[in-house]
């Protein structure tokens, strides 16, 4: 199988700080890659670099499209990159307020992605939005309400629906469970796991929560000071950590 996303020697510095230092990995279709590390370890920078939100210092990114051709993301023009972000990619943000339009209804939030890719039939947009609300376990009666009236967990589920409605092949997630309490987190994780399975999503998941990666990620990368210090199968890395930092990270996690 060919990888969906290939990252080769990606580097990014902020002045003298090396946020990402020669990072390489490959993501295969249907795979969930967890990236874990403490605050400031460069994981969000890595994700933003993949999404094209910040310019790279050096390195290459390749994305294999549906029809099999490979795009070099560093050379892709901005219009094509924006089209790619709207159609084949999705970005789930930590704070749903950044990923949603808070002043338009839940239905419009989901429908916007469809209108972005050219759907112009109100009835169809609405039907599809209702289906996606059901997928993320939000009652249809809340479709015409504003997201500001939703709880944090519901907002995050709505954001998932908004991102997934165009059936992206690659989803980038930046701490999707951050800021939620444990029971809501558990429900969201459960939902995300079933959605990932059902739609065969490929996901790059950035988090600092070991529980989240254990549940969702197939493979795991541990980052510290901008470098990947350990990578492998999630259970392998977490059950038998080799690097002292990973050992410390695993032992620092409370297991009830």
């Amino acid at each position: 199988m060919e990888p969906l996303l290939t990252i080769d020697q990606l580097s990014k510095t902020y002045g003298r700080i090396r946020a990402c230092d020669r990072i390489s990995f490959a993501l295969y279709p249907g795979q969930v890659l967890g990236i874990i590390g403490e605050s400031g370890s460069g994981k969000t920078t890595l994700l933003r670099a993949i999404a094209g939100a910040i310019a790279l210092d050096s390195g290459q990114l390749f994305y294999r499209r549906q029809m099999g051709d490979v795009l070099s993301l560093t050379q892709l023009s901005e219009p094509r990159r924006r089209i790619l972000m709207r159609s084949e990619w999705g970005f789930v943000r930590q704070n749903p307020r950044d990923g949603l339009r808070m002043n338009v209804t839940a239905g419009a939030n989901i429908g916007e992605r469809l209108m972005d890719i050219g759907q112009r039939h109100y009835g169809n947009i609405r039907t599809e939005a209702a289906q996606w609300l059901a997928q993320v376990e939000i009652g249809e009666e809340r479709m015409d309400q504003l997201p500001i009236h939703f709880s944090g967990g519901m907002q995050q589920r709505l954001q998932l629906a908004r991102v997934l409605v165009t059936k992206p092949r690659l989803v980038l997630m930046d701490e999707p469970t951050g800021g939620l309490d444990v029971s809501v987190q558990a429900r969201l994780l459960d939902l995300m796991r079933s959605l990932v399975r059902r739609f065969q999503l490929s996901v790059v998941l950035v988090t600092h929560d070991i529980g989240v990666v254990r549940l969702l990620a197939h493979r795991l990368m541990v980052m510290q000071n901008g470098q990947v210090i350990e990578a492998g199968l999630t259970d392998q890395v977490l059950d038998d950590p080799h690097h002292p930092y990973t050992q410390q990270l695993v032992s620092a996690t409370l297991t009830p």
Binding site: E78, P79, R82, R101, V104, T105, G107, A108, G111, E112, M115, D116, I117, G118, R120, Y122, I125, D144
Partner: peptide, 21 residues
């Protein structure tokens, strides 16, 4: 940028909201 790239999807959100309300 949105004008340059003809990204006019968000404008339809306004019409969608009108019909919804």
């Amino acid at each position: 940028k949105m004008h340059a790239l003809e990204e006019y999807g968000p404008m339809y959100v306004k019409l969608y909201e009108d019909i919804t309300h």
